[in-house]
């Protein structure tokens, strides 16, 4: 099977400082991949490069046969890559409903002029989007909160809403940036179930950056380990856990237990 996402010798330098060096890895369709590494290893930077927030200094990224080089973040999202953020970035003044429907606006057939004329086609599309948003909110148990302001939701629900919002863009690859951050053990178990559920239900690939090893091991089929911007290991959860280089990287740095 052709990989969904391929990174080929991607390098990122900030003012001479090398954050990512010659990174190669891929994600296959519907695969669950974990991206782990000690603090400051460059995991979020990789996300920012894939989603077009940063332009890599060197290297190629391909997604479903398209080169992502020079593409703006909104174009990359339109191709089918969606993400969440480490520090929640919801549209805080919009309602839960509006947060989700805004993420669908990239796929609209009508535009600015139809917003003025408000004809039958516009009404029909708005009605269709409304149904789609409610269907998504139903699936994730957020329907009762549809009219609440996003910033008023409890923390766990905000994390969940970020995932729903990302799914609303219609992705085939979902990037999750530390979704378990700030969660208690019970919430983490529910998060793992949620990720499995999303994977099954929407038949999409997931690339997960996470500190919590229990979550990573419980979710991912394959794991890529970064240290100082370099890939030091790659493999199944079992092989990674026994890899001496990985153990050293974590012992040398900061050890995170569940």
């Amino acid at each position: 099977m052709n990989p969904l996402l391929t990174l080929k010798s991607v390098t990122m330098e900030f003012g001479g400082l090398r954050a990512i060096g010659d990174l190669d890895f891929h994600v296959a369709p519907q695969e669950m991949v974990g991206l782990i590494g000690p603090n400051g290893a460059g995991k979020t930077t990789v996300f920012n490069i894939i989603t077009g927030v940063y332009k890599p200094t060197r290297g190629d990224i391909h997604f479903q046969g398209h080169s992502l080089q020079g593409k703006k973040p909104n174009r990359i999202t339109a191709l089918g890559i969606a993400r969440t953020f480490q520090n929640i970035r919801l549209f805080s003044s919009l309602s839960v409903f509006d947060n989700v429907r805004t993420a669908m606006s990239g796929r609209l057939r009508y535009g600015i002029v139809h917003s003025f004329t408000r004809g039958a086609a516009f009404q029909a599309e708005e009605a269709r989007i409304r149904d789609e948003v409610f269907a998504l909110l139903d699936i994730f148990g957020l329907r009762d909160d549809a009219d609440r302001q996003a910033s008023g939701l409890p923390y766990g629900d905000q994390r969940r809403l970020e995932i729903v919002r990302a799914l609303a863009t219609g992705p085939s690859l979902l990037l999750l940036d530390e979704p378990a951050a700030g969660m208690n053990p019970t919430e983490k178990v529910r998060l793992m179930e949620l990720i499995h559920f999303v994977h099954e239900k929407f038949r999409i690939a997931v690339l997960l950056v996470e500190h919590d090893m229990r979550v990573v091991m419980g979710v991912c089929q394959r794991i890529v380990v970064l240290d100082y911007g370099q890939k030091i290991a790659e493999g199944t959860p079992d092989t990674i856990q026994r890899d001496p280089k990985v153990i050293e990287a974590y012992l040398g740095g900061e050890v995170t237990h569940a």
């Binding site: 999202t77 969606a82 970035r89 549209f91 429907r101 606006s105 990239g106 796929r107 917003s115």
Partner: peptide, 21 residues
């Protein structure tokens, strides 16, 4: 739906871009 994008840009530009806006 199109117009909520204006407010999304105000609330968080980076997130708005990441949502395809």
């Amino acid at each position: 739906t199109y117009g909520r994008g204006f407010i999304a840009v105000r609330d968080d530009e980076i997130a708005a871009e990441a949502m395809g806006i």
